[in-house]
Amino acid sequence: MSISVESFSPLQQGLKAEGINRPSTTLWQDAWRRFRKNPLAMGGLTVLALIILFALFGPFFSQFDYKTNNLMATNQYPNWIHPFGTDELGRDILTRSMFGARISLLIGFGSVAINLTIGIFYGGISGYKGSWLDNFMQRIVDIIFSIPDLLYVILLMVTFGPGLRNIFIVLGLVNWVPMARIVRGQILTLREQEFVLAARTLGADTKRILIKHLLPNSIGQIIIVAALQIPAAIFMEAFLSFIGLGVQAPMVSLGSMASDGRMNIPSYPYSLIFPAAMIALLMLAFNFVGDGLRDAFDPKMRK
């Protein structure tokens, strides 16, 4: 078989052979695209959004507040005026749940903000500087890590005394440790990458390398850890309030409500069920979102 030369014609000159047609996507767009496809994570996100709305704006629509006693309406079962019922001092449990959820969310996000700051700073320096400094800093981390969290938290809470501010401080002091480890691990693997060497060759200083090169490449891992630390912090607060070391009356949290309700389980089970269900819902929603974020930022880690 022979093919005549005429059947070939030169490619039109000036065509952009090196053109890229695919639209440019960033890390965030890719992650969001994968996140959206995950029904559990999207469900978690929806529930979470509802709880946040419930906690932030719910109190404006309620005729009750969380601390005024109403001795004419104590221990009411759920009804049309009090959908979640009232407690032994006649306070509306629905309104109290809203304020309790506020505290929980505040603790969740606030303590993660604190441990992000400490963890990134500590892990970043430890991982990038390396050698004896890294060795020293990691031994400190090991010591803190070797003490059970619960023991450590209770000890600190007893020392500092109960209260919202102290919960922040204590959770911040505890939770930065895993964050610092993750950040350090990421930085250790990244700092030998050629793009970091290239930046050093160009004369970039430590600050620039950390902020521009190392941290942006660890951000996926950092978000994953942070997202899973939020529910842990919320649970820790609920637990501390439950054993009486958390927020103090008249301030209310889901944990202290559950603690109050515990006494009345036989006669008024709803006073425990509603706050406990709120805690469970929050935890589940955050965990699903956290897992979804992990799959979205790091598809290789799935399964």
Partner: peptide, 16 residues
């Protein structure tokens, strides 16, 4: 003095 690196996949910061 500048340098050109071996691995074109590792030598460019993927986030920039």
């Amino acid at each position: 003095i500048q340098m050109i690196f071996q691995d074109p996949y590792a030598s460019l910061n993927p986030r920039m």
